[in-house]
């Protein structure tokens, strides 16, 4: 089942890249999809069948504009700090806790944090994330966790868990 799904994903990517229905193209694609699916199939994440749940896709489509909004806001913030003559930064590394458990969910949380306001993930250790902030927020672990990853957790939990 998982093998078939990998095969299908690789083949779909190939067809999108080539964008032609020539039998030679389809044949080459099928051959390499078989090769890749057989030899590298085991590095794909488990529970790939979640791809077919429409509810997850709905939340994913909701997530994209939400994420882009925060991403643009982050960029304007960084641009302001860079162009300001005094470079007003107050950097530091803080530790926060997340409630997500899945590997995919945590990966996407870390990537989202890296691309959003003034934060960069340095390491993940179980439930702890080490974040480098360009402007350290006040408060203790709980308050910072709410502030930094609270905006993404509810949506990511519905998509990946």
């Amino acid at each position: 089942m998982k093998w078939l799904l990998c095969l299908f994903l690789v083949f779909a990517l190939w067809m999108l890249l080539m964008w032609s229905l020539d039998p030679l193209v389809i044949g080459t694609g099928a051959f390499f999809a078989l090769l890749v699916g057989t030899y590298l199939g085991d590095i794909y994440p488990e529970q790939l069948h979640k791809v077919f749940s429409p509810k997850r896709w709905l939340f994913f489509i909701l997530y994209v504009p939400y994420f882009l909004y925060y991403c643009v806001r982050a960029n304007l913030d960084v641009a302001f700090r860079v162009l300001h003559p005094d470079v007003p930064i107050r950097p530091g590394i803080v530790r926060i806790r997340t409630t997500l458990t899945g590997d995919m969910a945590k990966t996407f949380l870390a990537n989202s944090i890296t691309l959003t306001p003034g934060t960069l993930t340095i390491d993940i250790d179980g439930q702890d994330l080490y974040i480098h902030c360009i402007n350290v927020p006040p408060g203790d672990i709980a308050k910072r966790s709410r502030e930094i990853c609270g905006t993404f957790e509810p949506l990511l939990r519905r998509i990946f868990e």
Partner: peptide, 13 residues
Amino acid sequence: YNRAQAATKCVTL
């Protein structure tokens, strides 16, 4: 660390 932050965010977007 600060350079990586600014550069990664802005250049990726």
